[in-house]
C-alpha cells in the first residue's frame, strides 16, 4: 500500500533529474528494488502510472530490477545469497545479517529525448 508514497518520491527525483539534464520527454526509468524491501513491483508500476500523470514522466515505462539478498558472513567472510530469508552462512553455519545487497530502493537511470523546449 505504501507504493503510492514511494512512487511519489521516485517521481520527484526523476522530474528533478529530467529538468537538470534538459529532457523534453522521459520514455523509461530504471529502478532497482532489493528483495528485502517491502515493495511489490506491480503495485509500484501501477502507482507510478497514476502519480506521473500530467508531468514530464507521463507514459514513461518503469523497468524494475529485483536485487537478490547477498550477505557477508562475519566469521568466515564468505559472500552468500540468502534464500528463504535464512542468513545462516552455508560455509560455517554462523548467522550474519550483514547485507551487501537486497535492501535497495534506487533510481538508476532515465532515458528519453533531449529538446530545446522541455515541457513540465
Amino acid at each position: 500500500m505504501h507504493e503510492v508514497g514511494i512512487a511519489e518520491m521516485l517521481s520527484e527525483i526523476a522530474i528533478e533529474e529530467a529538468k537538470r539534464h534538459n529532457f523534453s520527454k522521459v520514455s523509461s526509468l530504471k529502478v532497482q528494488i532489493g528483495e528485502m524491501a517491502a515493495v511489490v513491483p506491480e503495485a509500484l508500476i501501477f502507482a507510478f502510472s497514476i502519480v506521473s500523470k500530467g508531468t514530464i514522466l507521463e507514459g514513461a515505462q518503469l523497468s524494475i530490477e529485483i536485487v537478490p539478498i547477498v550477505a557477508r558472513c562475519d566469521r568466515c567472510e564468505e559472500l552468500f545469497e540468502v534464500e528463504n530469508f535464512s542468513f545462516k552462512c552455508p560455509e560455517c553455519g554462523k548467522v550474519s545479517d550483514h547485507c551487501i545487497s537486497g535492501k535497495e530502493l534506487l533510481l538508476i537511470s532515465i532515458e528519453g529525448e533531449k529538446g530545446e523546449h522541455p515541457h513540465v
Partner: peptide, 13 residues
C-alpha cells in the same frame, strides 16, 4: 531531438 540516457543512482527514500 535525440535519445539520451542519464545515469542517476539516487536513493528513492
Amino acid at each position: 531531438m535525440s535519445e539520451i540516457s542519464v545515469t542517476v543512482v539516487r536513493n528513492i527514500l
